[in-house]
Design a protein around this nucleic acid. Structure first.
Lengths: 181, 181
DNA sequence: TTAACCATGTAATCTGTTACATGATTCA
DNA sequence: TGAATCATGTAACAGATTACATGGTTAA
């Protein structure tokens, strides 16, 4: 059981999903490729933490829809009470910015504007996401209770939005610092 | 040449350092252990990107002090102009918060307060760091030019501070959301 | 007709963590 | 006396990425 396994269980704890859907939806809090997810799902199934049914589809390929078992829920609950590892952030851009004096102003401005664009798109995506959560929750988001099924998603997306906004702010500040050079 | 290698080169581009010092100083932008760094330094040296001298110390163990070579600088400069990978963030806490409804309010509040404490300490550390940069730079930080040797560090620490503040903000907001449950 | 999306899987490789190994100095 | 810091290295293992493999549908 590694962290990604718990991530998969946490999604399945909300509702049954296929491996493909899990792969798409876990990106926001634990980036992973399908080649990592499919073998883990098989292991979780062998261990009795999840089970699946094959759902035939006419327009698309058939899919395996996984559900969490009671054993899986217990595992997840136990894990929550164990010590939490520190967050890990790795960003190539910060290395490049750190030694930006090796290149010229244009290069530096390009790097920053590309990243600003990335964060802008991310914000658009996150705002769409929060609107979808709002519709699903059926209540004003600010008054959501911990037991509302949408609560977890809201907390997650809210954090992603705050972080992305602070990153955008930094991009603008950094570009300004460059222009004043 | 992987990203960590460029991270090491970017530090050596500022000034010569030992493997041990590199290990400590790279944590802020690319977390890595000494067991990853020492073999990479050996490879970089074989490739002619860095060189080292052994500096004997009386009170502490002798150390290898590495410097970047011209070839290393060229490598680094070329790398900056190549496409930049998206940033990667992984945080166990977000998985736990996502399925927090499995546990009780106390558990949830504990998780958040522990993380808040972590971010508070990080902020203290970063503020100390920025003061040291300020002393070193010998000029008001807000007017630092791109070619000042402290510019890169300032950009880096500034981003870390903005991010940590936004994370702290989220922690407080999330705790409030819980209390209103 | 070409690319994108849906859908699942395995193999090879690279990256990162934990553990093993050694040994001096300093501080509580 | 025991823990922490300085200092460098290797080995084993776990985690993550890229590439290989297959094949249908849909929209530009």
């Amino acid at each position: 059981m590694n962290t990604l396994s718990y991530g998969l269980l946490s999604l399945l704890n909300k509702s049954p999903r296929s491996g493909y859907e899990l792969m798409q939806q876990i990106q926001l809090f634990w980036p992973a490729r399908h080649s990592q997810i499919y073998p883990l799902l098989a292991k979780l199934q062998e261990a009795g933490s999840v089970e699946f049914i094959i759902v035939p589809q006419s327009d698309k390929p058939d899919k395996k829809v996984y559900s969490i078992t009671q054993a899986g829920k217990n595992l997840l609950r136990e894990w929550i009470s164990q010590p939490t590892a520190d967050p890990i952030n790795r960003d190539e851009l910060m290395i490049k910015i750190f030694c930006i004096s090796l290149t010229n102003l244009n290069q530096a401005e390009l790097l920053l504007s590309q990243r600003e664009c990335y964060y802008r798109n991310k914000l658009l995506f996150l705002n769409e996401k929060i609107e979808r959560i709002s519709l699903l929750a059926g209540a004003p988001l600010e008054s959501l209770s911990m037991h509302n099924p949408s609560f977890g998603s809201y907390m997650l997306v809210k954090k992603a939005i705050l972080n992305t906004e602070s990153n955008l702010e930094w991009c603008k500040w950094a570009a300004m610092m460059l222009r004043n050079s």
